[in-house]
Every structure is written in structure tokens, then in C-alpha cells.
Amino acid sequence: MSKRLAIKMAIGGLVTALALASADRPASAKDVIRCQAKGQPDVIMTLDGERKFGRVLSCIKGDFVADMTPCAPNGGYGLSYPTGSASLAKVVDRWQDYADHLGGITGYAADVSSLRFDGGFYSPNQRKRGAWGSHWAFKVDRLTGKATLMQEGKPDIGYACAKARPRF
């Protein structure tokens, strides 16, 4: 085998190995957003960092989240089980698809200038068809890094957000 062919094969093998290694790493390694506010616990978002039900999901963590797994696809909803660990039961794309769901719901929408997570609970017995009780919303301006946490019955809280890189 010529030296040139051996080098090409070695480079090809290295490229393949790197591609396989990066496929196993979660996308969240480069898409973590940390939001901070004075006197408040941090809010952490992983954008397109989870895969479940054959979908790419974004998630949010904060002390305002309770009894649900707050992950959803862009433009869709994550539906959590109503009891137990409140893990994710399924994901749907339209509000009509959670009309018979009892439990936590997380909505997520992103575009080039903003991110928004909404969380709450839905009960089919609610008066307005298709209505769900939004208990919190977290909206981020991607251009300024400013965010607002809106919670039912509480004053809004302003946050400053920045891309973060996990240390390990």
C-alpha cells in the first residue's frame, strides 16, 4: 500500500471516529443557557439537548417548576404523567392533542430572537375547552440576554442570561 493511500485511510478513519464520538455526546454540551437574578436560584435551559419519543426537546430547570418534566419540542408541548415521578409521558405539536391529558404540560417556542417556556396543568374538566392553567412562563430575549419569569399570583422577576459551557 502506498504511503499516500495509508494517510488517506488514516484520515478517513479519524473523521469517522470523531463523527461517531460527537453523535454520542448530547447537544446540550454546547446549548446550555444560564439565567441569574439577584437573590434568586439560577434558571438553566438546555436547548435541543434531549431526545425522547423520536423528537429533539429543549428543557428548563428552575425552582418554579414542580410536578412535571419541563421539556418540549420547538412549537410543541411536553406532557408529564400526573403522579409518581411526573416524568414525560409524550410530546404533541398542537394544543388540541392534549385535550384528554391530565397532568403537567410544558410548552416551548423559539425563534432567532426569543425563547419561551410555559408550564402548567390541564384538566379536561376546565370550563374553557382547550384552556390550561399556565402557572409560569419564562421568556428570554436572545438579542439582549434579558429574561422574565412570570408566575401566577407573583410579581415578575427579571433575569440576565448567557450561554454557559459545562465544565465536565
Rank of each mutant, 00 (worst) to 15 (best):
H101Q: 10
L102S: 11
D97L: 09
V65M: 09
P82F: 11
V92F: 01
P70F: 04
S87Q: 06
A110D: 10
A72D: 10
T83L: 10
S80T: 09
K90R: 14
G103T: 14
L102Q: 13
D100H: 12
Q96A: 14
A86I: 00
P70K: 08
Y81R: 09
G78N: 05
C71I: 02
Y81E: 13
T106I: 04
Y81N: 09
P73N: 03
G107F: 15
S87R: 04
T69P: 00
F64R: 07
W95T: 15
Y77A: 01
T69A: 06
G84S: 03
D100E: 15
P82T: 13
P70D: 08
D100G: 10
Y108R: 06
T106F: 09
Y98A: 03
P70G: 08
L79N: 02
P73W: 06
G75F: 14
Y77H: 02
A86H: 15
D97K: 07
Q96T: 15
V65F: 06
D67E: 15
D100M: 12
G84M: 02
D93P: 00
G103R: 10
R94D: 15
T69R: 01
I105Q: 03
Y77D: 04
F64V: 11
K90M: 11
H101W: 05
A110I: 11
Y77R: 01
D100I: 12
N74C: 06
L88F: 05
I105S: 05
Y81Q: 10
V91D: 04
Q96H: 11
Y77C: 02
V91Y: 05
D97N: 13
G84E: 03
T106R: 06
